[in-house]
Design a protein around this nucleic acid. Sequence first.
DNA 1: CTGTGGTAACTTACCCGAGAGTCATATAGG
DNA 2: CCTATATGACTCTCGGGTAAGTTACCACAG
Lengths: 207, 207
Amino acid sequence: MARTNAGTKGVPRAEREQQILAVASLAFGTDGFAATNLADVAAEAGISKPLIYNYFGSKEGLFAACLDEAGDLMAGEIERIARGDAVGIERGIRTLDGMFAVLDEQRHLWRLLHDRTAPSTGAIADVVSHHTERIDKLAHEGVTELLALAGDTDERDISVMTAAWLGIVDSLMDWWVAHPDETATQMNERVTRLFTALLVDIVRGDA
Amino acid sequence: MARTNAGTKGVPRAEREQQILAVASLAFGTDGFAATNLADVAAEAGISKPLIYNYFGSKEGLFAACLDEAGDLMAGEIERIARGDAVGIERGIRTLDGMFAVLDEQRHLWRLLHDRTAPSTGAIADVVSHHTERIDKLAHEGVTELLALAGDTDERDISVMTAAWLGIVDSLMDWWVAHPDETATQMNERVTRLFTALLVDIVRGDA
DNA sequence: CTGTGGTAACTTACCCGAGAGTCATATAGG
DNA sequence: CCTATATGACTCTCGGGTAAGTTACCACAG
């Protein structure tokens, strides 16, 4: 007759870590770093708080691990698209499509990299800057190409436009999170239609 | 010989409230609701914490007051622009110019309405939704007009595009906050130049 | 032009709950 | 029987919120 629930349950560390990461990523992505408490995460994962500390060291350590996984997934996909031959607007659309495809079942991951409630120093900052640098570099590259087509090579213009582009991606992801019934394919079509409407039809009709 | 620092300093309530609001808005706008602590706000305002509670009731009450002031400033300006005769892209540019002008010396105010760390229920939620509804309504109206020029009247397309537009505004404000030396006039010119580059030069040259 | 009492403007010193982080301990499996 | 996997029951700090008082200004009686 067991008086406590202690003792191994036969789940190896690597597997348990993955399971904790999944639960924690959802919580962090949904509520943000500050508003997430580890007791809840532990309960949801069906384990106890000390086990999390055993495996990840601290709340920041856990967040950094979530961040690293999510950041690598996203930056990896963006890099993959960038190696393709699309240029200008087409490259933007393809990047968005790639994000929709990769994040379909885990849209909340997008928020992890932009969490303003996370500490801006220490291990977390390192992981964040590592991945955002990968992403920003490619966004900057794409925008530079795009604006070059219009003869604009002003560095600050490029910087502003890059920020705006990332803002567009961000808001589209937000909208997608708020509309769970919308599929990746539908988003894809919608975005393509909107870009076309704006850049072709409107300019020809009205300017 | 004063043993305590208690006792009035001759500052009337209305004036003190304004002063607290200014300090609090900066703190909330910079660090977010959750990461702001009232002891610091009080210290920065040169008064003690209980005075804040005396005048605003609670942390949420203080935030709601900041929000109401900022929201009214921004929504008011957007409504003013909307009453003008600009349509389509031109309306978007004028709206941005208005925001740059109004927020020039207090760029952090923009963040207050989008603070994800603030409680999403109670008095704060009411104030937030009151102002965001004013703003969203006009954004939706402007986007509807714009997309109608391209023959797109799909309600979800309009919803996505509105989200993207607000995302653009958001990211431009962020960029502006991060570049304090950039004047409102410079932002104005930059945005106009970029819209022109994208919508005219690129489409004509490449599509 | 003086008391004097009422009130608005203030503060010090505290309470208390939430949540990060830890310690000592338990037990299943090789 | 040893160790990786696990936990119940703590501690401690931070910060929102409060109780109880202190002091300056002001209106008005004398």
